[in-house]
Design a protein around this nucleic acid. Structure first.
Lengths: 249, 249
DNA sequence: TATAGTTGTCTATATCACTAGACAAATTTT
DNA sequence: AAAATTTGTCTAGTGATATAGACAACTATA
């Protein structure tokens, strides 16, 4: 329920262990802003009572979050919150990674993890308005803000038109800047489809997430002002660190 | 990765049982359209080999999905897919439940589960532009399409202006129709914030989900054409059955 | 009718998840 | 200094999860 405190309910024999459910709820609670930075978490015994589990189970949950860098435990003192509120990532007609997070972070950039030239799959071809099998460049990238990974994306561009964009991306660390080199001064978000799922193994590694984490998936097509598709992309955002704010298109 | 087959990877000792991870992946695969309706799932031994687990573990996953009504197992024949592709729920300036799903379903309506008059919480008050504590009506609703639950929402309205809207909702089964009774012929989506999390106990029950299921959460404000807020809402969509399509605002 | 392929059931065993209790170690408060 | 509070570590027992293998029951096909 909104406004009220959330139901701290956990399910037994659900296929998801109790410690992971508790870790998820604590994470959600932190992301929702229930704890200030450096604030102390309730003591283990209190959490155990609240969730109706053994103290050791709570300790497993906390251990997972410590491992993930969300909490810091100090013997004799307590357990403290390290991470911040969720970033709010705006999505609209002029969705840009860097400008969108301005004001919320002091630094952000995009890292190119890998790139390849490949024939367009059905899905990519449709998005870019090309024939299936046309050569396209795929860029695998990670968005970082203040050193924390906040997005993981694959994006596709027509290979002929954007030859060498991988090198340019490495140099500029920005999609917008890279496209400028190819004469694209402005582009618009034509369509966005959102879904959510559990992070797969590659996302877990690239986004530094724990197994069972949830990712928001945005599949988008960017076009030039006159409507020609230039980029097809699938971006995964860690739901525990990012929320998406839809702005006017 | 898009276009290619997804990494069928499962994680051991992750806090999520193997059978649940496999169930999630099968569900995702069905929702993505990898199986036609009534198509046969690969045999249990094939799935066990693909995921590198025992056949009994696969059977646990299938049993969960049968329980959920997604699959139907027939001894001697095979296991068959019952459910369809994900519904695509459009979100834009004129987001309406019923019209949005037209063409994808033959029938849809909204069921009022509960209602209450309460003082506005901080969050609700901000959304509606009222003073905190002002009396508001909260409607708890479920959206259904072809008899399947596709959304679960709480929505708030100023109590004074919309007295009796709960009864009207029950009668009309539509938000749009109900607001018409109060002289609202048109309304616009002012803002939408999206996130994702695991479904809590009440959502599991209302949406007929299995523990561990993911919900997309949309928090929105609807306003009259001249900009006055009339409704604040939080809607949960089961990620396995619904995707959100952002349209022009 | 026989055979191959599939789901359903049973037994047994090992590992992980959870509970229970006790006490140590570190910190803060009295 | 002593007491209270909190996290850290250890042992032991129970139930859920996963593996392994065998065979029954049912269906479709050669």
């Amino acid at each position: 329920m909104a406004g009220q405190q959330r139901a701290d309910s956990i399910e037994r024999r659900s296929g998801v262990s109790l410690w992971r459910q508790i870790a998820d709820q604590v994470l959600h609670s932190i992301a929702a802003g229930d704890f200030a930075e450096n604030a102390a978490l309730p003591p283990e015994v209190a959490l155990a009572e609240r969730y109706g589990v053994n103290r050791h189970t709570v300790r497993s949950a906390i251990a997972a979050l410590v491992q993930e860098g969300v909490l810091r435990a100090e013997q004799g003192r307590g357990t403290f919150v390290l991470s911040r509120k969720r970033l709010s990532y705006p999505i609209g007609a002029r969705t840009r990674f860097s400008t969108g997070l301005q004001g919320q972070t002091s630094e952000r950039h995009i890292v190119l993890l890998a790139s390849a030239i490949e024939p367009a799959s059905q899905r990519v071809a449709e998005g870019l308005g090309l024939a299936k099998g046309t050569e396209v460049i795929r860029l695998e990238t990670r968005g970082e803000a203040d050193g924390r990974p906040v997005s993981r994306a694959a994006s596709w561009y027509e290979a002929k038109r954007f030859a060498g964009i991988d090198a340019v991306m490495t140099e500029t660390g920005s999609i917008t800047a890279s496209l400028k080199r190819f004469g694209i001064d402005d582009y618009l978000r034509q369509s966005t489809v959102l879904s959510a799922r559990h992070a797969d193994a590659t996302d877990l590694a690239a986004l530094n997430l724990q197994p069972g984490a949830i990712v928001l998936v945005a599949v988008a097509v960017n076009v030039t002002p006159d409507g020609r598709p230039i980029q097809f992309s699938e971006t995964r955002f860690p739901a525990e660190r990012v929320e998406l704010k839809l702005s006017a298109l």
